[in-house]
Amino acid sequence: MKILVPVKRVIDYNIKVCIKKDGSDVDLNNTKMSINPFDEIAIEEAMRLKEAGIATEVIAMSCGTLASTDVLRTALALGADRSILVELEHNPEPLAVAKLIKVVCDKEQATLIICGKQAIDDDSNQTGQMVAALLGWSQATFASEVKIDGDSALVTREVDGGLETLKVLLPAVITTDLRLNEPRYATLPNIMKAKRKPLDTFSAADLGVDVSPRLTLLKVLEPTKRTAGVMLENVDALIGKLKTEAKVI
C-alpha cells in the first residue's frame, strides 16, 4: 500500500504574523517558515504504518513555490521515500490543491492519503475532505487513532462531544488531529540522506489542473486588540471587580 502525504510550508507556529501596512495581505518577508505541524503528524503516522509493514512506500507532496522544497526535505528527513513538488507561483486555494493531489494520487495509485486537518496559516480545514470528494473515497477527519484492518481503517475521531470511531473502506483520506502521535525528530544522518532522495517537480499545467483562484482577498484587517487589564492584590479584590465593575457574577 502506498501512502501519499501532502505537506504545506507555513509560518512557524511560534511566530505571530504581521499585517502589511497597506492592509493588502499579511507580511511573511523574513518570517521563519516550517512544515505545517499537522502535516508533520501525518508523515509520522505514515512512517509508523510503513514500519509496521502495512505501507510499502510513503510519498510526500507539496503545492507551492520553489521554497516549498524545504518542507519536502523535512518530510524526506522524517522518512518519506520520495517527494513531489507541484511548483506554482502563489499558494493555491484548497480546491485547487485538492485537484492537484487527486491527479498525483491517480498517477501514483496510492491507497491512503494522510494529511493535516488544517494548515495553521489560513486555518481552512478543507483540503482532505475535498480530495476525498474528488476521488469518491471515504474520509475520516480529525483522527486521534488509526488502525488498518484488512480493507478498512478504524479511525478514532475527535468530535465536538468527545470521540467517535469510524470504520472507513479503503482507499480513504485521513486527516490528522494533534493527539494522533508525537512526531519524531529528524536525525542528522537522516537529514543528510534526505538530500539524496528523489524530488520530482511538475507544474499545474503538466498535471492538467486549472488552479485559478475563485476567491479574492480584498484586504486583511487587524482584529480588535485586547489590552492588558489590571493586576489585583488578592481574591477579595477579584470578587469585588467581577461583581461591581464587570458585573459578570
Partner: peptide, 11 residues
C-alpha cells in the same frame, strides 16, 4: 486567519 491574528475580507 493565522489563529485569529488577522482577519481576511474575502470575495
Amino acid at each position: 486567519i493565522y489563529a485569529g491574528n488577522a482577519l481576511a475580507m474575502i470575495q
